[in-house]
Amino acid sequence: MSSFAVGSGLSIASILLAVIVLAAMLIWVERRLLGFWQERLGPNRVGWFGILQVVADMIKIFTKEDWVPPFADRLSFVLAPAIIMVVVLMSFAVIPFTPEIGVIDSNIGVLFVLAMASLGAYSVMLGGLSSNNKYALLGSLRAAAQMVSYEVFMGISLLGVVVLAGSFNLRGIVESQADGWYIIPQCIGFLIFLIAGVAESHRLPFDIPEAEQEICAGYHTEYSGMKFGMFFVGEYLGLVLISSLITVLFFGGWLGPSFLPPIVWFALKAGFFIAFFILMRAALPRPRYDQLMSYGWLFLLPLSLLNLLLTGVVVLSTL
């Protein structure tokens, strides 16, 4: 019981705790980093360097009234924020953090992540639809189109890695990168996955479903209190998930020189990508909705198919 092993109770509990605490801490980390990058200070009053800002936010969010608008469709309205939390937390089940830490070793890990990502679209859509609000509806319409489209490129860009590793098992993919990370042969796949990952977790610059300047707060216009908090934390969980996936698929997961333990390597790589996503939020402007769609279908889709084709040719010719 006291030792880590894949699927042990201790392993599962520590992953769950670490991921949720990390996602909550990211609220503060993101605001602080955005502050630095925009020549501001960011929250620095509560606790050391403002680190207790998270606690203050939590207290605020938990003590708010749990309100369902009378014009909303109650069932879907309550269900929607729960879906995103469940779906993203489920995805962490197949992520191999270190050789010892992980929840399950699934032979269909990549597919499982894709399935969960596609189910995540419901959260946004139902949230917007059940709110009975024009802005929320516009937001969820945009979310539906965006997420369904970018799922396609996300899946196809992953297939290059799957072809090289010969396995859908994420742990197997990490282990097959022992003599070279997949970022080198799969740099196009990596770029597509990066872009699609941002679009899939609808963060800036692709936060078109909740574009504040255009449509209020998009799909979560009517949400407040802990229901909004779940959307909020779910977004950060998605950020952690995408960063972990990039680390696992393209940057060798826990692999690294042995002077640091595997978990530290994993955390360093994933943390780098989390910071990179926050940098993207600080720097890049939001594209227009039609630009996003045509960029995806007319540029990313052919590129990802080409990448898959080339990978297949190379793999077959070296058999």
């Binding site: 630095f36 925009q38 501001r40 993207m280 720097a283």
Partner: peptide
């Protein structure tokens, strides 16, 4: 976009205006 990202990243080493 990469150039933009780099330029904003350099702001990490600039004193805050506020």
């Amino acid at each position: 976009q990469a150039v933009t990202l780099w330029r904003v990243f350099r702001k990490l080493f600039v004193k805050a205006d506020t």
